[in-house]
Design a protein around this nucleic acid. Structure first.
Lengths: 189, 189, 189, 189
DNA sequence: GATGAATGAGAATTCATTCAT
DNA sequence: CATGAATGAATTCTCATTCAT
């Protein structure tokens, strides 16, 4: 069944299939053949778009990192703490809206180099630290809050995500509110 | 006089060797032979103490879960929020003191059933929710804080752990303070 | 007006590309795609001229065998041993002049049926045996030389070729002289 | 069926099985599983003694090279040309006596680095050149014969081998005599 | 005719597990 | 008990060949 025009589209389909499979059984237990079957193609065809099994995880990472970067870049103007609250809401909403992608995160955490999850969280922390600095300039921050809290805010989000990954009963989408309550409202002056 | 009197002790040694190996290369890349070598015994001898490779991870989980339960059970009396702060401090200290065990967590998160990480976090949340209830009875809790914040408090801890796992530059031990600042002091009335 | 008028010419181009590729990396490591790329056409197009990968080697063999046969047929009249010396010179010159074809020989030797390298050498031996017989009739042959020496003469040539294939430092073209010295002059009466 | 004492012996058995298989179908068509079956063991067990399929060919080469070196080292004293004749006889006898090893040669010729067949032939040529020099000192060599004839002598042997490999009808063992006639007696003064 | 995406049989290699010693 | 050789199922990746466009 030869001839397909859009190589990028096919690559995308395979990646999405891979993400579904990884979400379902974890990367370690996912076979190339599973991905191919999920994508409705033959085993060998996966290799037309990806060099190796690891390259699939790498691509999943890149896709996730790109989404994160976009999210960080898309904050509209406004009071810093409001923007922070919005950021938290959006991150949680994105994770809740794409549970498959979210479930792959646990594999990205495991993967180590050349995947650079550290960079992703560094970017988050820097963005949040920037918002906190801005909030201080606006006089909106209560004393005693400094940049180290950026770590805690990222932690609150990722920690909720983690608990939900481990226990899908947990209503991830509902957790944006308490995170904001504690991490954003809790630091307002 | 059998060469090895204490079967339990041998099992313990192997488990510890396994944890070191898993911490170093991840469970997925850890071979039974690696564990045996680390323990200074022969490959086949691992099977005298453990039924299978997965049983090693299971045992690592049980060991971690037991440590967590002990930590939760060991809180001395006192004002609830102080006890909460102590809990946070102790959990972070334990993780920082045993980086090998901590690094295995990412594999425990991935593992899925029959490992029940969900139960571990459920227990944490319940303990913390209990402390929050108690704090309310003590009139120490500001309004608007309810049991859902237990999730966020666990999240703050595990999220810091996660960022440290992914980026060991991050000073995990120093993060207890900001966590407490935000999650404990921040909810005080 | 078809894109390609001469199917035979296209076949020839592909065969030559194949010989270059085989010479460079050996038949075993040569992919159809490599041959296609060398010929500047698409993988599938190779199959318009050749039935299979093996057919390429078969064709290379036929081309070599045809060249050999032509060489054997082209001997001008004259004293038999002079003609023999000329034959040796020409074979060596041909091999040295077409190193790519020569390098493919090692794959032809390996290939086994249906390639019939045995026939090629049989033909060489028969031609040389004929020349030796003629030389005897001419009284030019010293006693003790019989048809079995045809094998040795072929061997001297192919053995030099072999040493050159294995060690390209060896100056193949210069070896015609000592071969003739030993195998031709050495049998003169 | 565990426990085998002599690892070296097992390695040797496997190597011999491999040589038989390579001789029968050529290295390119020989599967690890074929070798294992020939050795009467399981596929995976081959890897207990050899790192890879290529390592089997490498070992076959080393074995052949060692045999050649031993042959070259074992020449008893005597007139140089007699020793040369003995050498030729022994090489041919060795090849004829171990047809399996001989048939693998065609794969060794193909293999290229890190196999160094060039060195094997270089050693042969040097040994023979030494004998020719000695023969000259002994006054046994007719004029016009120099070291370049060493190439031709090696060629005569290997070329006969080659013709026999390609056409097993050819009586290899009987070819020592004509080789000596032409290459040794033919250079005697 | 050309093309190159798609296929899937096949091969090398790994490694958890077993069990004879 | 302890060992590690032996096993073979499982998995990744390759590539000759086909065929829709």
């Amino acid at each position: 069944m030869p001839k397909r025009v859009d190589h990028a589209a096919r690559r995308q389909e395979i990646l999405q299939a891979a993400v579904r499979v990884f979400a379902r059984k974890g990367f370690a237990s996912s076979r190339i053949e599973d991905v191919a079957a999920e994508a409705g193609i033959a085993k060998g065809s996966v290799y037309l778009s990806f060099d190796s099994r690891d390259a699939l995880l790498q691509a999943a990472f890149e896709s996730y990192a790109a989404g994160s970067a976009q999210l960080l870049a898309s904050l509209e103007p406004g009071p810093a703490l409001d923007r922070l609250a919005t950021l938290v809401r959006r991150v949680v909403a994105m994770l809740a809206a794409h549970p498959d992608h979210a479930r792959v995160l646990v594999d990205l955490w495991s993967a180590g180099p050349p995947l650079d999850m550290a960079a992703v969280y560094r970017d988050y922390r820097e963005a949040i630290a920037g918002l906190l600095r801005q909030a201080r300039e606006e006089g909106a921050l209560r004393p005693g809050i400094d940049e180290r809290h950026a770590v805690v805010i990222v932690a609150a989000i990722e920690g909720c995500l983690l608990q939900w990954l481990v226990d899908p009963e947990l209503p991830l989408a509902d957790l944006a509110a308490p995170i904001i309550e504690v991490c954003v409202e809790g630091v307002r002056s």
